[in-house]
């Protein structure tokens, strides 16, 4: 979503992005004239008249599970966003019985919070795992 019109979205997709991604952008490109939606999400920069790089993960209930906002010159890490969605999905599927520690990736050890884990995290989770 940006403040550009859908016509500009079309030109950008058809003339440039489709040369980077086969078939063009696979998801809807949204237009937010005047930054009305961006204001509500706290990402509209009034002075520059543009939206900053906000990214929101919204779960199937419509609840915001996480967000990240960067100023324009620094791009995002898409794999990190995907990893976070995978982590939230795991937690949701476990009905909250499992949690994903720092550095978690699919297939790695999860934590099962409860009385037995208090003071014992060091036994199941090693510091190196945060830097994998």
């Amino acid at each position: 979503m940006s403040i550009d019109s859908v016509f500009v979205h079309k030109m950008w997709n058809d003339n440039e992005l489709s040369k980077m991604v086969n078939g063009g952008v696979p998801f809807p490109m949204l237009s937010d004239a005047g930054g009305r939606v961006g204001k509500v999400f706290g990402v509209y920069d009034e002075d520059a008249g543009v939206e900053t790089r906000g990214r929101f993960i919204i779960d199937p209930e419509g609840v915001v599970q996480g967000f990240e906002v960067l100023t324009p010159p620094v791009g995002r890490n898409i794999m990190e966003s995907i990893r976070q969605v995978q982590a939230f999905q795991l937690v949701r599927n476990s009905k909250g019985k499992e949690a994903t520690p720092s550095g978690w990736k699919p297939g790695k050890v999860t934590l099962k919070p409860g009385p037995d884990l208090v003071g014992k995290v060091w036994e199941v989770w090693k510091t190196e795992m945060a830097f994998d």
Partner: peptide
């Protein structure tokens, strides 16, 4: 999109560089 996971992304503008 209720019932699905959504990633909502804002960005400064079309044809920008980053």
């Amino acid at each position: 999109y209720l019932g699905k996971w959504v990633i909502l992304c804002f960005y400064p503008g079309d044809f920008t560089f980053v």
